[in-house]
Design a protein around this nucleic acid. Structure first.
Lengths: 124, 124
DNA sequence: AGTTTATATAACTATATAGTATTCTAACAA
DNA sequence: TTGTTAGAATACTATATAGTTATATAAACT
């Protein structure tokens, strides 16, 4: 079986899932979500992002590089400063979908707890 | 500044991004995407998933646990076998959004290449 | 030229986790 | 009971990466 094109029982080689996994991986760190969150308001340079997020300079620089290589941010040097901005707003769709779902779940659990907990006033 | 509720300049404490990051992290591994992919057709037990994906038993078991704890899969023991199935189809929405976008980008790059490459027949 | 400032890069450490080998548990069968 | 099979849990290794410190580059100003 060739390693470069192995297939599972669906006939789809799992390597083709790698770009998808990599994309999700970029969104799977708090620091990067923080960066994206503060760029919702518009372009910012590195220093500004650093102030807003509290991330260290070198660390921030690495995260910005990752986000840029994933084509989520665009990089725009202006003199000595470098401005970054959201290039693909789809990430916010993704984040909203996940956020909303997590919120739904919490609410469902709260309601279930209210209905079933022995000492609730509403458990008549 | 309290560590349990630090705030960036937006006034939003970054800890609240953790559940979102964790959710994306679950989707950021090829093996887990493989599992989800083959469960699209319906419930399967662990052995079947193992055969379909080629993942080792212990490894597979860990991934299934993660996916279940993330409430993406549901776990249903039937005798000695344990069946897993998709509990939250939202993941497929997420994957489709990402897949479609990655495809779009590839196509755009291909077109750009065609338009700009020096030796293209269509570069008249 | 030299100096300062903004960002990037390199080297390093510490932690997290994917994969594997092994052991454990529980259901069913003989 | 004993044996067998399916799945989970534990222990371990190897790799990846987040964060940090230190250094490099490059633009703007003296």
């Amino acid at each position: 079986m060739p390693k470069t094109d192995s297939r599972d029982k669906t006939g789809k080689p799992p390597e083709y899932l790698a770009p998808v996994a990599d994309y999700f991986k970029v969104l799977s760190e708090i620091s990067r979500l923080q960066i994206l969150s503060c760029l919702r308001e518009g372009a910012m340079n590195v220093s500004e992002i650093g102030e807003a997020t509290g991330l260290g300079q070198a660390n921030l620089s690495k995260h910005l590089k990752m986000l840029t290589e994933a084509e989520i941010l665009s990089r725009n040097p202006q003199g000595v400063a470098v401005y970054y901005e959201i290039q693909d707003p789809m990430i916010f769709e993704l984040c909203e979908l996940v956020c909303d779902r997590l919120y739904q779940r919490m609410q469902q659990k709260a309601e279930k707890f209210k209905r079933l907990s022995a000492f609730s006033a509403s458990a008549k």
